[in-house]
Amino acid sequence: MSKLSSKPLPKPLAYLGQAVVYGAVAVLLGYFSTSPAYERFPADKAQLVLSFTHIGERTTPCRKLTREEIAELAANMRRSEVCERERVPLYVELSLDGEDLYSASLAPTGLSRDGAAQVHERFTLAPGQHHLRLAMRDSARETGFDYESELAIELRPGQNFVVDFRPEFGGFRFGRQEGS
């Protein structure tokens, strides 16, 4: 039986060809493992991140139960007050140098709207001195704010400046400042 198949190259030529193929694969692996570079953020800008989670007040205040109402409850279910689960949305304003940068009403999470409202926003800013003002309403009131903060900041290029909210520390918390 004769076997017909494509004629192989002379060995030296074949080895040279193989080396070229391996080289091409190496270039493919080596190049795309780091290139092309991705300019993710302009080096001459700074970034401000507003990020927090906070649970607003209840939409309806808790109500004290009467003695009769408590008595009607099963012995193991008795409690002094009842509370609706739903929370109010948070209203947040962020302004920079007197200009509004961000304002939003943040809905509470959860199917019963009883979870914390969340925000995580990034802003690209010019470096230098800025005046930052933050305000938040987490109650059912219709005007005014429950928390307000103002801060003079100096941002350097490439800086990531974080604004958080921690009620246990009295409200808005600001990221590390130059020299701090």
């Binding site: 795309f32 493992s33 780091t34 290139s35 570079a37 991705y38 300019e39 993710r40 953020f41 302009p42 080096a43 700074a46 970034q47 490439g158 800086q159 990531n160 990221g175 590390r176």
Partner: peptide
């Protein structure tokens, strides 16, 4: 985390 990564050499694979 105080700085923003700017120039990145991604592994595109």
């Amino acid at each position: 985390l105080v700085a923003v990564p700017t120039h990145l050499q991604l592994d595109w694979y």
